[in-house]
Design a protein around this nucleic acid. Structure first.
Lengths: 298, 298
DNA sequence: GGCAGGTCATAGAGTTCCTCTATGGCTCAA
DNA sequence: TTGAGCCATAGAGGAACTCTATGACCTGCC
């Protein structure tokens, strides 16, 4: 039947047991009592229906199933920590924080990972994250409401410093049932320009990149649907009849799972994701550290 | 302070609210009462310290923070569903199940995703997953204890059918502090053959691939440490002084986060991950479906 | 041989938390 | 104005988790 989702803290405990080799030590690490840990593991095993531990008076070892489940647990915990870190940055204004404004694509896919790494590198830095589209990020920097910004799209304005931090690519995706999924040759730009598409709202970096690339071909036609986030777009594309244009970062999972198909295109929709900051002002220490973290990532 | 981890079911509810636009409908989808959903969302907001919803008598919409958090929640839920699916396959023997044996690398990184997709495609198929190293997988197939196997390494034995399902690459990784992380030119095979390494146990596909590649250079020297899973190896590599050789799948996250550094090598350590099954026997329907799912993935 | 220090399990009590049903207030559309 | 849909509150019930205290067991040392 509908298997209930496991408890994240129980998974965390499992990982702790795997690493310490003892329920008691794992309990101490999680700051709970040893009997609680014992009960929690028992509950987890019962819920999952799998024996994970071999308990013995000299410690606890993982079963072969436990070994695999522990690794799966890590893949769940990692984005969970990223979420917690990201949420902490979203929390309403607090003094002494580095004020970061980031466009949606970057905030969604890159920022949480950066924040986790930043916390490792320097636990003292606290970030306040503001999510806005690229145009708005620039406004905030100019208005002194943000110390550091992240935008996608063409170049940065002249009055701002900028540095590339990652590369992204817009992709055209359709549901597997859509006719384009069986296309043999790459899409010609004109096809893209004349087909009603599922798009992000005007002012977003994603939309601007596409419009700039299609400007020579008459610009984009009236969108089939215009939505304010990537998730609704994904869903519309999966169930919908129109193609969507989205960041490759946002649909990598869907493509891998076969729920969406990438349609090759002749158009070059690569784009650079950049950190930007005001020319006049001095960059705070914390911003320098964050910039350092964003270096050397994909 | 130590931020507590969110409740997965609360995150699931948040996603449901985002998609239905209403707390009540989301509650119905999760099969809980509307007041429970209301309370759960309130608890989630309190725990995270962020307002996620704008409630109104005509429905609930996400705040801008809620939009982002919802997307983060999806990235947490996806591996969680994969874990649940995987665990269900690990559960002790049940009749009428497709018996699959997979090597550790495949079981850890690819199988859960396949199972989630398989469930989408055909909810009727139930898989029983057995994790063993590549040598053992082949034994199980020959002994009739498994219907379908997945192995990594060189070619498959002659008495088995096989089909490539994915490609993988072994990488040499070291902690950022290790001298090799500053190496200018690619590692020569002899260096790798004469350096004590952190390795998986003999008999594992990972180990065999490395030994085959180094055979011409005198084989691998005595390992610095020999461990039975990728997780302990990762940890040993991160904190350790010796280089580790691991599947790229297993360390992609660590490399992205900068906790490990990949050392380029002249040695070609690409390898093909294959599905294998006995020649004589007929492949069960369910196996054919699973094979179909594994097609067209990275 | 026996004691010390580690392991994990059990028992019982207290409490927190979450669930439900029932109800009320609000908005929007007919 | 009325009805349907939305969300919040109240109050009761119960499930689950927490803790402390204790016991049983293995390992290693004296």
């Amino acid at each position: 039947m509908a298997q209930r989702l496991p408890d994240l803290e129980a998974l965390e405990l499992l990982v702790a047991v795997a690493e310490t080799g003892s329920l008691g030590q794992a309990a101490a690490r999680q700051r709970i009592s040893q009997p609680s840990a014992s009960a929690r593991m028992r509950t987890l095993e019962r819920r999952l229906g799998v024996r994970l531990l071999v308990r013995s008076p000299s410690g606890s070892r993982l079963t072969s199933a436990g070994l695999v489940v522990t690794d799966w647990a890590r893949t769940v915990l990692e984005p969970a920590y990223a979420l917690v870190e990201g949420v902490s940055a979203l929390r309403a204004r607090q003094h002494g924080r580095l004020r970061v404004a980031a466009s949606l694509t970057i905030a969604e896919h890159l920022m949480p990972g950066w924040l986790v790494t930043l916390r490792d590198v320097d636990p003292g830095v606290h970030v306040e994250l503001n999510v806005a589209n690229s145009a708005h990020v620039i406004e905030r920097l100019r208005g002194g409401e943000a110390d550091l910004g992240f935008i996608e799209g063409r170049g940065a304005p002249r009055d701002l410093h900028s540095r590339a931090v990652a590369r992204d690519r817009l992709v055209v995706v359709v549901a597997p049932a859509h006719a384009w999924s069986r296309k043999r040759r790459p899409l010609r730009p004109v096809e893209l320009a004349t087909t009603p598409l599922l798009l992000r709202e005007a002012g977003s970096g994603t939309r601007e990149t596409l419009e700039a690339a299609l400007a020579a071909y008459g610009g984009v036609t009236e969108p089939a649907l215009e939505l304010g986030g990537t998730a609704p777009l994904r869903i519309a594309a999966i169930s919908g009849t129109a193609p969507a244009v989205l960041s490759a970062l946002a649909v990598a999972d869907e493509i891998a799972a076969g729920r969406l198909v990438e349609v090759p295109s002749e158009l070059n929709l690569d784009r650079v994701l950049r950190a930007v900051w005001p020319r006049g002002r001095e960059l705070p220490d914390a911003a320098v550290r964050l910039l350092h973290v964003t270096r050397g990532r994909s």
